[in-house]
Every structure is written in structure tokens, then in C-alpha cells.
């Protein structure tokens, strides 16, 4: 029998969030995907979810979910779990959903596997792939009968269209308890910035003396912009006065651990490496093939940073447009 998998779909700017749709598509491949949509915009979002793989959508259009964090959603899903036993709750990993999943797990004693990059059913058994540290990948499961929870890593799955699929829509008639209205959102503040701050950026493009002169630093900034990352710098060019101190990455300066670090014209003095070697992926472009930066790079390009950067900016733009 096909497994029933519930997916909690979040709403962003009146549309289903991309991270939710990724998970929904995956659920549709694994079995019967059923979506849960909560919040004032739930009713408008629900009909579109069939196209992304949902066979059924549970809807509760109530503004309480918009104002009060976690508990109303936990109550509603709990309520639903009293009535039906899906095989799996497959949720995206987001700020809000993490909190909901943790409480659901505790309330219903549901096994919980996080950071999944893949999952499949081997017969009756669920197998979840979870990367561990830098070296290992583990395969985990819920060792019992009944519902379990899996949180999927963002971008682990791609969004797919299920042309023509129409989801059955069920309006939930739950009454939200007043006790669940505790964590109240008083205000939402958008912090305006040109890009992410260095410390928070998941992608950093950083420049060093290999850029030659200050005028060339704009290439680093451009690449950072097209990748949606932040530009950084070595102490040498900050010292030389090309950039303010806030750009400096290193032992002195900022310590960063982005997913991707692109070092452009940086030789890799230990003082710099100390600030960025925790990055998940490191790409280095440098003329000198003996530069120490290559010793930590996942991908090292021996070449002229001034030639490569403009090409790379164009290439990234081109590929982004295709996505």
C-alpha cells in the first residue's frame, strides 16, 4: 500500500514556500502526499498544491497562525494525528517548522530524523540518508510501527510539476485553544542591506592582493552579488586601504564558515586561513600554483583572477537564468 506522507506547507508572500514544495514533490514520489496549509492565506494557496504533487490538502485558514508561533500549528496537526495515522511527516527545515516538529515529536512520541538529504522505502522500511560530519553518511530509520518525522535539508530535492493533478481539499474545523496563543509576534522587521552580512552569508567571495589594484575589487563584489553572497577581503588589502576593516576575514577580522568560499587572488597566509578554513566548500583562484590557499581548496584554479572573474560572472548569470 502506498505510504501516506504529510507535508506542512509554509506560505511566503502569499505563495507556497519553495522549501515546502521541494519536500512536497519528494513526498509525491514516495507515496501519497498530503499537504497541510495553515494561516490566513491558506485557502488561496491550497488549490495550487496539487500541481506540486499533493493528493489532498488540509486547510485551516485562520489568522491566528500568522500571529502566534508554533503552538496553534502543533495543536492542529496533533488533532489531525488523533484522527489519522500517516506513515510519515516529511517537513522542510525552516525556522518555524523546526519548532513545530520538535513539539510534535515530544507530544506523540514520534521518532525524529533531521537533516535528511534523501529518503526511500525499502519495502515497509524507511531509509533516511543523513550526512554526518565531513566524512560519513548514515542511513537511519524509525525502528517502530507508526508515524515518524523526517526534516529534509533545504535544496535536497527539486521542485517538480505534476501536470493536471488536482488535490482534494479538506477544510479543517478545529477550534484553536487560547492556551496555544502564547508566543505572540509583535512586530516583523526586515533588515535592509545590500547583501548578507559576512558572518551570516552562506556564500562569500573574497579578494586579496592578487587583484592588483583597488579598482579591480569590484569584480569580487559583482561575483558576490550574482551568487547572492557577501564580499570579503584579506588583511593585506584592508591594510593597503582598499577597503574598510569590516571586510577583513582572518584571525584578526571576522571568522566565517559559509557553505561556499571563493578566494580570489589570495595566497592564504595562516592569519587568513584561520578565519575561513571552516567553510564547507573552498574555491581558490591564484596565479601561483604553490600558494598555500590551494592546500585547503576543494577546487583550485591556477590562473589570472582578472581574466577568470569576468567570465565566471557571466557564466553564473547565464546558468542562473536557466534554472
Amino acid at each position: 500500500m502506498a505510504k501516506t506522507i504529510w507535508v506542512l506547507v509554509e506560505i511566503e508572500d502569499g505563495r507556497p514556500a519553495r522549501s515546502s514544495l521541494e519536500v512536497l514533490s519528494k513526498a509525491a514520489h514516495l507515496g501519497r502526499a498530503e499537504a497541510i496549509v495553515l494561516g490566513s492565506a491558506a485557502a488561496t494557496v491550497a488549490p495550487s498544491l496539487g500541481e506540486f504533487g499533493a493528493e489532498k490538502v488540509y486547510v485551516h485558514a485562520d489568522p491566528t497562525y500568522d500571529t502566534y508561533l508554533t503552538l496553534p500549528a502543533v495543536d492542529t496537526i496533533s488533532d489531525l494525528l488523533q484522527r489519522q495515522q500517516p506513515d510519515l511527516l516529511l517537513f522542510p527545515t525552516t525556522y518555524d517548522v523546526r519548532d513545530i516538529a520538535a513539539r510534535l515529536s515530544a507530544r506523540h512520541n514520534l521518532g525524529l530524523i533531521t537533516d535528511a538529504t534523501d529518503l526511500r522505502y525499502e519495502g515497509e522500511h524507511l531509509e533516511v540518508t543523513v550526512p554526518w560530519g565531513g566524512e560519513n553518511v548514515v542511513v537511519a530509520t524509525h525502528p517502530y510501527q507508526g508515524t515518524g518525522i523526517v526534516l529534509a535539508r533545504p535544496k535536497a530535492f527539486s521542485v517538480e510539476r505534476f501536470e493536471g493533478r488536482q488535490a482534494e481539499i479538506e477544510q479543517l474545523s478545529v477550534t484553536l485553544r487560547s492556551e496555544s496563543q502564547q508566543m505572540k509576534i509583535l512586530d516583523r522587521v526586515e533588515v535592509q542591506s545590500d547583501g548578507p552580512a559576512l558572518e551570516d552569508a552562506s556564500i562569500i567571495v573574497s579578494g586579496g592582493r592578487g587583484l592588483g589594484k583597488p579598482e579591480n575589487y569590484h569584480l569580487v563584489e559583482e561575483l558576490a552579488t550574482v551568487l547572492g553572497g557577501a564580499p570579503g577581503a584579506t588583511r593585506a588589502i584592508v591594510d593597503a586601504g582598499w577597503l574598510p576593516y569590516s571586510y577583513q576575514i582572518g584571525q584578526t577580522g571576522k571568522t566565517v564558515k559559509p557553505t561556499l568560499y571563493i578566494a580570489c587572488g589570495i595566497s592564504g597566509a595562516i592569519q587568513h586561513l584561520a578565519g575561513m578554513k571552516g567553510s564547507k566548500y573552498i574555491i581558490a583562484i591564484n596565479k601561483d600554483e604553490h600558494a598555500p590557499i590551494f592546500s585547503v581548496a576543494d577546487l583550485g584554479i591556477v590562473g589570472d583572477v582578472l581574466t577568470i572573474l569576468p567570465q565566471l560572472i557571466e557564466e553564473v548569470k547565464r546558468r542562473k537564468a536557466q534554472l
Binding site: 521518532g111 525524529l112 565531513g134 530509520t141 525502528p143 592546500s295 585547503v296 581548496a297 576543494d298 591556477v302
Partner: peptide
């Protein structure tokens, strides 16, 4: 425990520092 590790495998070997000379196709 409500979760169980079935097996531990090696992660896709993180290609140990691939260093490539630019021949015009670096981008």
C-alpha cells in the same frame, strides 16, 4: 530511542584539492 542508525557509510569522497591550470575554461 525512536530513531536508529542502520548503517554508516563514507561520504562521497570530497575530491581532495583538485588543482587545475586555467586553459580558458576555468569559468
Amino acid at each position: 530511542a525512536r530513531e536508529q542508525i542502520l548503517s554508516i557509510g563514507k561520504a562521497e569522497a570530497r575530491a581532495a584539492g583538485q588543482i587545475i591550470k586555467d586553459e580558458g575554461n576555468a569559468a
